[in-house]
Design a protein around this nucleic acid. Structure first.
Lengths: 341, 341
DNA sequence: ATGTTTAATGTAATCGATTACATTTTATGA
DNA sequence: TCATAAAATGTAATCGATTACATTAAACAT
């Protein structure tokens, strides 16, 4: 059928061992034979059979990335960064996007644990319960966990500083004098970033000895990544007898929903209401007024996580920081000002 | 080392052939033995070795998707749709994003042709020259081509109707009475969508017996997917002695750049200038005024392309439409009106 | 009861590389 | 020149499944 190593060997007048060496350890072969083998490979248009190689070496040179979605700006940047490292290091990337669907996440985990499919797994912002996540950790491939906490294990993880992100936006608003500050947050059960961002909100208040008004904290369980459903919630906030003077959105997409509602109600940002987001997506700077938000170095996180993972694969014995926290940075634009009156 | 089929066989008191049958052809095995084998698998936590299977069956159950970027809304939706089909059909998805970089595209093609890595390839919006693309087509795996034309081969392709998209926005502006209509287009050498969208622009004029003013056609060679560089070009248009009354952007991101420039210059959309985009990304409807654009059913394209590809894999003899053209739909919003004066 | 078909299982070759170990060739030193 | 070390290459076992073919057991017909 297809040309195999044996054919190349025959054509070059050597053994398959030598052909294999030309491919994997060229230094062990004399220049002369090397050339002959290369020519034969060229001539016959030989393509190595990766399955056979994998079977023998027990390596796939594939990394799996498990990620809730690739449609969000932060996520797709991260994936691209990961892929860049993969390409550079001659790995191939298996995309496992779970769409925030725990069943699908479970299915992918089953796949990745039950079968020798990838040399390593990058597991991003899981939404699954801890015991599901642990199944993967107990699997054969090394795993790097991003944006998830599993207190009791020593799994290496690379985290964005989610706490700090919302803490910074909130603190900024508080420093402008706002006290009626609302929070729009996600509340999917095991979604670490949402929990941490909430934490940041509380922290900012605590820092100046206050507590946020619970009535101004809105948490929506949003499995999908559709954002239109936030508008009702936002209207509710404005309909309050004592409405917020500032709104902290847990991400930019939701902040833009606030913009939309304000437009509907004829409210002016920032004069009538201050708004902050998080993530610094492209539209954050394009929108009018430009949105104050937090820059999340997604590419950097992807790069670091991937580099760690590759290190775990190639040097299983080497120690790795079990926790890397990536700092984030407040970007002040025009969507906030001192409270009216 | 790890538990293999032989161990399961021993534990269940059968031969490996039977274990294999339980996994692949359960009907050939008696209920009794089947149960025993399943128990043993469970007991031993047996995980099949995919490399071994692939070696034997010559199948990888992997599809590779080659795509310029996953950071554009149209693209990431398409990828997700493709992945949905893959998951459903028990395939795994290899992500090969080329970042609009022909060298990287070339490298991926080499990988995909030189090695038995995927059972099929989805090749989206290539930017490479025809002979590079042909290398892939000559490779071992079946390929579906999206948004590319290679007149002389009978490669099955699934195309978005790029011509029609811009033709519709342009025709719409013309029908409103605009004559000074500018085009902002991409001009990467082998990028089919850009060529076709330009075509649509010309067609719309031709339909009413006119020709567009060449001075109003701006084509930017933009290898990356950064869009900020358009602003200079847009300013140039407005600085013309006889500036356009309407601007046709080849996609929504660029249309939003027009919005930004208008804001800078104090021009009002649509009163001072009408603007259209293409793709109907999320911000198109969120922006103020909402953008008139063209809805591109990216998910559908992904789904169809993937289904065709799987058909080619499972039924190599079956005939497949060599060209599928997916219709697109004009979405009129508030960014256009009749020309002033 | 016996021959014949069908169902269930086993035996062993095979897929195509890698690599430990053995062997041959070449280089080096006294 | 010859012994010995180093370099180059070859031989064959091995990775872990699948599956053609062979065999045995069960079901059925007459």
């Amino acid at each position: 059928m297809s040309v195999k190593m044996e054919d190349v060997a025959r054509a070059a007048g050597v053994s398959t061992a030598t052909v294999s060496r030309v491919l994997n350890n060229p230094d062990l072969v004399s220049d002369d034979t090397k050339q002959r083998v290369m020519d034969a490979i060229q001539q016959l248009d030989y393509k190595i059979n990766l399955a056979a190689r994998s079977l023998r070496t027990n390596q796939t040179r594939t990394i799996a990335i498990v990620i809730p979605t690739i449609s969000e700006p932060v996520m797709n940047e991260l994936v691209e960064a990961v892929e860049d490292v993969a390409v550079q290091e001659n790995y191939t990337l298996l995309l496992c996007s779970t769409r925030g669907n725990p069943e699908r996440e479970q299915a992918y985990i089953r796949l990745l644990t039950q079968q020798t499919i990838a040399d390593g797994v990058l597991y991003l912002s899981p939404r699954a319960a801890p015991d599901v996540v642990r199944q993967l950790l107990d699997g054969p491939a090394p795993v790097i966990l991003c944006n998830y906490s599993l207190d009791d294990t020593a799994t290496p993880s690379v985290m964005m500083d989610h706490v700090s992100s919302i803490q910074q936006t909130t603190a900024y608003l508080l420093s402008l004098g706002h006290r009626q500050v609302a929070l729009l947050n996600l509340s999917a059960p095991h979604y670490y970033p949402a929990r941490m961002r909430h934490q940041g909100f509380e922290n900012a208040f605590a820092e100046i000895g206050l507590t946020p008004d619970p009535i101004l904290i809105k948490e929506l369980d949003q499995p999908t990544y559709e954002h239109d459903e936030w508008q009702d919630t936002i209207h509710q906030l404005f309909d309050l007898p004592d409405p917020p003077t500032a709104i902290v959105a847990f991400n930019d997409m939701v902040a833009l929903q606030v913009y939309a509602v304000c437009r509907q109600r004829g409210l002016r940002i920032p004069d009538d209401i201050s708004v902050t987001g998080c993530d610094d997506i492209l539209s954050a700077s394009h929108v009018e007024p430009a949105l104050t938000t937090v820059r999340i170095p997604a590419r950097e996180q992807g790069r670091i996580a991937m580099q760690y993972l590759l290190k775990m694969i190639t040097q299983p014995e080497a120690s790795i920081n079990s926790l890397t926290l990536i700092p984030v940075e407040l970007v002040t634009r025009e969507s906030c000002t001192v409270p009216a009156g």
